[in-house]
Nucleic acid binder design. Structure first.
Lengths: 338, 338
DNA sequence: ACTGGCACTCCTCCCGGCAGAGTGCCAGTC
DNA sequence: GACTGGCACTCTGCCGGGAGGAGTGCCAGT
C-alpha cells in the first residue's frame, strides 16, 4: 500500500522532471497527478525515497529530481510501454521501402531513428557470426596493381588494393577462379583458413601472386568483422544547449570514437528487448552523464548488429525505448527478407 | 602613410581579438603591438575604420571587434602566410603512409585536418570529370537478385542490387562481358551513353536482363558523380561552447546536410589556393555566423575534389589557411601517385 | 495513517551603486 | 596638419542587500 504509493510518487516525479527539466515539488505533484493525498503526505514519501537513493534535491528547499537509480527503478518497474503514435508507426513502416542497397538501408535507419526519438542515433552495420563469403573479385588496376573486392552474404563490400607487379590477365582470371572455389559460400572463419592453405595447392606459376593475394584477403576478412557505425541526428543535441557540459560535449566526444560506440552497442546483445544504460551505469567514463538506449536487431534469434540513441539521462524513456525497439524490429525483418 | 597605419591597427585588432575573444581597446593595442603612437591617435584610426565598416563595437564604450568585412581585408591584404610548425609539417608528410585504400586515405585526411586546425574538418571524396570506368562486376546474390558493382579509376566502388528473377549463371557471365566491353575505360558520361544503346545490340535471350541491368547501372553512374563527404573533429566544437548559438548549433546543423556541404566545398574550385568564406559571405544561411576555409585538391590542374574546415569567424586564418593548403597539396600528390 | 499549519531555508530575481574600461572630443604641441 | 594629453562621459560587469517565493521538515491534531 505505502510502497505502492511511493512508487506512484517516483513515477510522477520522473515524468514531470523529464518534461519540465526542473526540480519538482510536493505541491505541484499532487496538483498535476491525482494522487488522492495531501502534499504533506507526499513529502513524507519523498523523504523516504530520498533516503533510499531514488531521488535527490539540488539544494535544501528545492524540489526533487530523480537519481540514476531512480530512473532505473522507473524503467524496470514503472514504465508502461508507450504506444507509438500513428505518425511514427507509419514513418517506421515505410521508411525502408525503396532502399537501394545496404548503405542506403543503414542511412535511412539512422535518419529515421534520429527523427522519431529526437536524439542522436547510432546504427551499426550488420555483422553475422554466420556471415558467409559470397564472392571475391580481382580487378586489374594497372600493370602493377590489383584491386581485391570481397562481398559478403549481407551485401557488404570490402576493397583493398594489392601490389602485384607484372601480373597477366590470364593468371588473374585463374587465380580468381581458384580463390572463389576455395571460399565462396564458406563462413568468414572457414574462408580464412581455406585461404591460408590454398597457397600450397596452386600451380607453381601462380605461387607468388597467390601468396600476396591471400594475405591481403586474410587482412580484409580480419577487419571485416569489426564493423562500422553510422551516426545521425547530431543537431538534436542543440536542444540541450543549456546542458552543454553534461550532454553536448560528452556525446560529441564519444561519437568521434568509433571503437567506443561499437563497444557500447555491442553490449546490447539480446535482440527483441531494449538495453538501457543510465548515467553512471555506463562503462565509458565520458558518457556517465548521459543515457544510452539500444537494441540488437536481427531475425530469428540471429543477431546481426545493434542500434540505439544517446541523450541526457533526463529523457523520455518509455517513448524512446518503444521507438528503438520498433525500428530495430523493422530493420531486422527488412534485412531478413532481402 | 596614414592608410598604412590604419591597416596596422586593423591587423592588430584582428590578431588580438582572435586570441582573446574580447573586444580590444586602444590602450591595450599600443601596449601589445609597438605602433609608435599614442592611444588617442589609435582611437582616431579606429573611428575611421569603424566608419568604413571594418570594425564595430558591441556597445558604446567597449573595445572594437572586426566585422566580416574587416576579416576579409585582413586576409586579402594583411595576412602573411604563417609557416607551419615542424610538428605539423611532420604530421602532414607522414599521415598517409600506410593508407590501405581510398576510404582509409579520406579517413586519415579528415582526422589530420581536424587535428592540425583544431576545427571541424570536411573532406570530399575525389571525383574527376575525366574519371573513367575501370570495371563492372555482376554477382549473383540469390536466384532472383544480382549485385552490380561499379569500380572507377579513382578506386571508388559503388554497389546496387538488381531484381533479376531466374537469371542463369551463364547468361550473367555473357552479360558481364558485354557490359564491360561497352564501358571499360570509358569516361562516366561516355559509358552512360554506351549503356543506353547497348540494350539494342545484345542477343535476344539477354534482352530483358540487359535492360534491367543497364538502367540500374545508369542510375549508379548518375549518383556516383555526386560524391560523399566525410566529417571529423566535431568535438573541436566544444572549444566554442560559449558561442553555442552562433557556432556550435549552426555547424552541427550544416554537417547533417550532405548536400549543403557538397555545395559549399564545390565552390572552392581553384586548386592550389585557398577559398575563404567569412560569415555573411557564406551562401548558406545557417552558416552566416561561421567561416569556411577550403581548398580543392588534385594534381596537375586536374581537380579531384575539395576539403576544408568550418569554424567561428573569429579564427586564426593565417594558420588555418596554411594547414588546409598543405593538407590539400599533400593529398593531391599522394592520390596522383597511387 | 494522513493532514493542516507553521517556521525555516535557500534560491532567484531585482535593484542601486560602484569601479573600470573605453570612448569621443578638445585644446595644446611639434 | 598630424599627433598627444587630458577630461568628461557612457556603458558594462560585479557586488551586496533585500523581497519574494517555492519548497521543505516537523509537529500537533484528526
Amino acid at each position: 500500500m505505502l510502497e505502492d504509493r511511493k512508487l506512484q510518487v517516483l513515477r510522477a516525479i520522473v515524468s514531470d522532471y523529464v518534461s519540465s527539466q526542473e526540480p519538482v515539488g510536493s505541491k505541484a505533484l499532487v496538483e498535476r497527478h491525482n494522487l488522492g493525498v495531501s502534499p504533506a503526505t507526499v513529502r513524507n514519501d519523498m523523504a523516504a525515497l530520498e533516503e533510499e537513493g531514488y531521488i535527490t534535491q539540488p539544494h535544501t528547499s528545492a524540489g526533487r529530481i530523480p537519481t540514476d537509480k531512480g530512473y532505473r527503478l522507473f524503467i524496470d518497474r514503472l514504465a508502461g510501454v508507450k504506444p507509438l503514435s500513428p505518425a511514427e508507426r507509419r514513418a517506421i513502416s515505410t521508411f525502408l521501402s525503396g532502399a537501394l542497397d545496404l548503405d542506403d538501408v543503414v542511412g535511412r535507419t539512422v535518419r529515421l531513428l534520429a527523427q522519431v526519438t529526437r536524439q542522436v542515433a547510432i546504427v551499426q552495420y550488420p555483422v553475422l557470426s554466420s556471415e558467409s563469403l559470397r564472392h571475391i573479385e580481382l580487378v586489374s588496376l594497372s600493370a602493377d596493381r590489383v584491386l581485391a573486392i570481397v562481398i559478403t552474404s549481407t551485401g557488404k563490400v570490402h576493397q583493398r588494393s594489392v601490389d602485384l607487379p607484372g601480373h597477366g590477365e590470364a593468371d588473374l582470371a585463374e587465380l580468381r577462379t581458384l580463390v572463389n572455389a576455395a571460399t565462396a559460400g564458406a563462413s568468414l572463419t572457414d574462408a580464412a583458413s581455406s585461404l591460408g592453405t590454398m597457397a600450397d595447392h596452386v600451380p607453381p606459376h601462380l605461387g607468388a601472386m597467390a601468396a600476396q593475394v591471400s594475405s591481403t584477403l586474410l587482412e580484409v576478412l580480419g577487419t571485416s568483422t569489426a564493423t562500422r557505425v553510422v551516426v545521425g541526428g547530431v543537431p538534436n543535441l542543440t536542444r540541450f544547449g543549456d546542458e552543454f557540459e553534461t550532454t553536448v560535449k560528452p556525446v560529441l566526444e564519444a561519437l568521434e570514437e568509433q571503437v567506443v560506440l561499437l563497444k557500447l552497442l555491442g553490449e546490447a546483445a539480446t535482440p527483441g528487448d531494449v538495453t538501457v544504460r543510465i548515467g553512471q551505469e555506463n562503462p565509458y567514463r565520458e558518457l556517465q552523464t548521459t543515457s544510452l538506449v539500444a537494441s540488437a536487431y536481427g531475425s530469428d534469434g540471429d543477431i546481426w548488429a545493434s542500434l540505439g540513441v544517446v541523450g541526457p539521462t533526463r529523457m523520455d524513456y518509455p517513448s524512446t525505448m518503444a521507438s528503438v525497439r520498433a525500428v530495430a524490429r523493422y530493420v531486422g525483418r527488412f534485412l531478413a527478407e532481402s
